[in-house]
Structure formats: C-alpha cells, structure tokens
C-alpha cells in the first residue's frame, strides 16, 4: 500500500452497539440515547444527527487518547487544537430541520416564527462544526455529502489533509438519522439511526507502544464499476482475505476467490455510514485475532460510482512498515 492511514481511535453510536467490538455481535437494537452517553447539557437544540455524531466523536477522540480529560464528554483535546481536523459524512443529516423550518415558513407565510436558535442546524456543515466547537478542534472542517460512497470519500479527504500537512489528526464521523422526512426522501422503510467515528493519525505505535493503531487503511479509490476499482487500488486479490460489499451484504458474491463478509445485522439503510461501519467491523475482527487484508467497497449502480479502500490488520501493517523502512535504510 503506497499511502497508509492509521486508525488510532474508534467511536460507535449505533442501536445495539456502543463500542467497536459490539459491531460484531450487536445487542437488541435500542435507539441510541445521546444524553445517557455524553450528558444532556449542550444537546438541547442540536438535531438528532448532530447529537449522534457528538457521541461517536467523543468516543473516538477518547479512544485515540487525544482528550485532556478522557472521562469528561465536554473535554477539549489536549494536543494542538489547530492540528485536529474534522470531516463529517452525512447525506440526510439535517434534512428534518430544513423540512420543519420550511413548514413553519409556509404555514405563517413569514419567517417570523422560525426558531432563531435552530438556524445553525440549517447549515449543511452543522455536524462538523458542532463537533469542533464542543471538543475544541480548530483544524480544517468540512462535510462530505456524496451519496452511498460518502463515508469512504471522507476517508479520502482525511488522507489528503494528513498528506498535505494540514492536520496531524483527522476526526472522521459518518452519521445518519432515521425519521419520517428521511424515510420519505430516501424511499426506505427504515434508515440507520446512528454514527460511527474514527480518528486517523500518525501510527501510535511509533510514539506509544501501549496504543497501537487498530487498523491501517490504504488510499481510497473511486471507479465506475467494482472491476475498474480493483486495479486502481493496486490490489493483489490473492492477498485479500475478504470483502465488504456495497449493499452491506454479500449479494455481489465472490470477487475472484475473495469471499464476501456479511455485516451480519440489519442496521437499516446505512447511506454514508456504511463505509466507516465496514472499516470498524474489520478493526473489530482484527482485535478479536483476525489478521490479513480486507476490502471495503461502497457504491450504487444508480450513482454509477464505487469507492473502495483496503483495511489491513495493524500488526501485519507495522511489520510491512518496518520492512519498508529497513529497505529504505539499506
């Protein structure tokens, strides 16, 4: 893998799964209760997507060891604030807030009764900016709203920021809310109602052997078909141990001899959360002892685009890194 992104922190706020390893075997799905996870203070006027994202963001930043007080869910980061970027991925994030405001304006034929304090929720970047405000993240801040590939596209942007030196750590959070507005717009009986966050940054095992990276990602690539995607990823299929399909299921069958991996749970239509969910599922498998390289693919024939990344087990990746360093040294 030419470019490597190190997953140094993971946060999960999904119905029935509140941490990385629970993704492999979720409990009976109960809606995520953000107030129970990070306290109710500061959540009053945030929309559902922002609340879910703040939960996952807190867990990921804590997991990465970046918070000044890990037990305080309103803690700022302990590292240089301008070195931490935020990228949110969401397709339906504030759709409910926008629809409700339009209804208010339509009913009163004026903007007089529009809630002033709700207006920040009408910004497409509200999720990323609220995460930055709450946790004191002053690096680049943006939102990717790019359909089914949105989660993996956000990882591509994270790689770009790290490579360009614009950030040392990137918080990537993918979130979707489930509500009537989303179901109607997306034409789905049930949308995923949750968030997954990852912190990407320098290999922690270089600075802290007690906190090695949880997975190593290759540069994300895009192509019109899955067949076109593989050469762009530079992937040797004989070295891939499994792949996550774009439907979150195995309907695409084998790629070469590579077997599909089922996410094994119906989370609802995952939209932009799928890509990060695949990566976290892979990281959970690695934590449980699996090794090797997995392929995550998102996309939709209707969109005419697929996006993929390789997810490698950390210890093996460290060895590969060491070998590369050794070669360079020689």
């Amino acid at each position: 893998m030419s470019e490597q992104l190190f997953v140094t922190g993971i946060g999960v706020a999904l119905p029935g799964a509140d941490h990385r390893d629970a993704v492999l075997d979720p409990q009976v799905p109960e809606p995520v209760d953000p107030a129970a996870r990070i306290g109710r203070k500061g959540l009053r006027y945030k929309d559902r997507a922002t609340q879910l994202a703040l939960v996952a963001a807190y867990e990921a930043l804590r997991d990465a060891g970046l918070l000044s007080d890990p037990d305080d869910a309103k803690s700022h980061v302990a590292v240089d604030a301008s070195s931490v970027a935020v990228i949110a991925a969401s397709n339906y994030g504030n759709l409910d807030s926008v629809a409700a405001t339009i209804d208010t304006i339509q009913q009163d034929r004026s903007t007089r009764l529009v809630s002033p304090i709700n207006t920040p929720n009408l910004s497409s970047n509200v999720i990323a900016s609220e995460a930055a405000i709450r946790y004191g993240l002053r690096g680049p801040n943006l939102t990717v709203c790019n359909g089914s590939t949105g989660g993996l596209d956000a990882l591509r942007w994270a790689g770009s920021l790290l490579r360009a030196g614009r950030a040392e750590h990137v918080l990537v959070v993918a979130v979707e809310p489930d509500n009537d507005v989303v179901r109607s717009f997306a034409g789905t009986p049930r949308a995923l109602d949750g968030a997954v966050a990852m912190v990407l940054g320098p290999a922690r095992d270089e600075v802290d052997t007690k906190r090695p990276p949880q997975a190593v990602l290759s540069a994300t690539q895009r192509a019109a078909t899955i067949d076109d995607l593989l050469p762009r990823l530079g992937v040797d299929l004989t070295a891939v141990d499994g792949w996550y399909g774009p439907g979150g299921a195995a309907e695409h069958g084998l790629i070469g001899q590579v077997r599909p991996i089922e996410l094994g749970h119906d989370w609802g239509t995952p939209s932009s959360v799928l890509g990060l969910l695949q990566c976290v599922h892979a990281a959970a498998r690695f934590a449980a002892g699996a090794t090797g390289t997995l392929l995550a693919v998102c996309g939709d024939p209707a969109d005419g685009v697929y996006c993929g990344t390789l997810v490698e087990a950390p210890r093996q990746a460290s060895r590969a890194l060491t070998a590369a360093g050794h070669d360079a040294h020689r």
């Binding site: 007089r112 009764l113 529009v114 809630s115 002033p116 304090i117």
Partner: peptide
C-alpha cells in the same frame, strides 16, 4: 443573544403576540 431571541419567538408562538 440567540437564546434571548429564541425566548421572544417562543413567547410569540405561545401568547399569539408580536
């Protein structure tokens, strides 16, 4: 200032005043 405006709008809605 934002909460103050929100309070004004809440009172407008509830009390039907401007």
């Amino acid at each position: 200032s934002l909460l103050a405006l929100e309070l004004a709008v809440a009172l407008e809605r509830r009390c039907q005043i401007k």
